[in-house]
Design a protein around this nucleic acid. Structure first.
Lengths: 198, 198
DNA sequence: CGGTTAATGCGACGAATGTTGCATTAGGAT
DNA sequence: ATCCTAATGCAACATTCGTCGCATTAACCG
């Protein structure tokens, strides 16, 4: 996923350059948004030469992919609140916060994923990982006897989380935090009612 | 929404140029996908001069917006199948078909909506219109006594349709037609169970 | 018919965007 | 310390993108 990992010479300067560039990416993103994010701008702000940025990252999408790789938390796991509804609400709050902040790094990465296949792949891998890890909240609910044993985790998670992405990212409608929580509550209630059985 | 409507001289040549250009847009889109869609390419293929395309449409997003405007069906309304589940399944099948075809015009417009505010506005208006019209399927279900009177149409529609967009457009996972139908069934079942009450 | 004029065609231009060859610098190894 | 070389800096170049002024064409109007 990362661009500059496994370099043959990951020494001091290379690491410093990468840090400077990624810091500049974040700053430029905050200042001009994704549309205004340009290689030249990042190079100028970071003090690194244009050519270096082009050679190591290639495109704007590459920069964002690397920024995402540098920031991922490999130890992430969904919180165990003791109930399916609580777990899903926690998940939805996290998603809502990541999307509702302006400018949103997540939305920026989504944007770039429509431009280059590499960014699309990186994002797909990231999401696949997250949704796979998230499935345990449903398994825990099954183990607790909270929902039927044949409950489909995929549908539970999709029903809970997809509306937030859809409204905030695609429809670009405002969506309050409580509305995001409501979708979690609805999904949990439907799961308890046995609607997501096979 | 349209770019070239209400022109002061919507005569033969202007209309012909527009038709040629939009036809070229579709062809280029099918050939190179959205990433490879460029003003110069469209101009070359259509036989219309670069400058003309720049003047009338300005950006790639403008071309797609106009293509969308030329293709919209203003008389669209959700089919009345006699049941909420049937109506939602019909909706989801339409959405699935629009997104699963490659290359998808809908996905192309979504892509461009991340680049320019005009495309974003056009898409938002289009979707607001569609979701507003779609709300009648819930109202009909209420009138039939199929679901509680306080059922929230927004949540019913979002829960049914958002997962399709999420999986096909953002997650870029394959999604079968029957899986899309399943989300409609789930949403209808949850609505009947009174989960989407206020 | 001819006249008017919006729309288009045309070429040239400037700016932004990537690319390439070569010089320089600074990790890392001996 | 010194050498080796990957990484970076640098400048020039090619290409693409978008704009502008002006000539030309062809709808629309009388």
């Amino acid at each position: 996923m990362a661009v500059a990992e496994n370099a043959t010479r990951p020494g001091g300067r290379t690491a410093r350059v990468r840090a400077d560039v990624l810091k500049a990416v974040e700053a430029e993103l905050a200042e001009h948004g994704y549309d205004g994010l340009t290689i030249d701008g990042v190079a100028a702000r970071s003090g690194v030469h244009r050519t270096t940025v082009y050679r190591r990252w290639g495109t704007v999408a590459g920069l964002l992919v690397d920024l995402l790789a540098a920031g991922v938390d490999d130890s992430w796991a969904p919180t165990d609140t003791g109930s399916l509804e609580g777990d899903l609400m926690k998940l939805n709050r996290e998603i809502h916060d990541a999307l509702a902040v302006a400018p949103s790094l997540t939305v920026a990465v989504i944007s770039s994923s429509f431009r280059t296949p590499e960014a699309a792949d990186a994002l797909r891998a990231f999401w696949e990982d997250r949704y796979t890890r998230s499935a345990v909240v449903v398994q825990r609910a099954i183990d607790r006897g909270e929902v039927p044993p044949d409950t489909d985790p995929q549908r539970v998670l999709m029903t809970a989380t997809a509306p937030i992405y859809h409204q905030l990212v695609l429809l670009r409608q405002p969506l309050s935090r409580v509305a995001a929580e409501q979708y979690a509550r609805d999904s949990a209630a439907a799961a308890r009612a046995g609607i997501y059985g096979h």
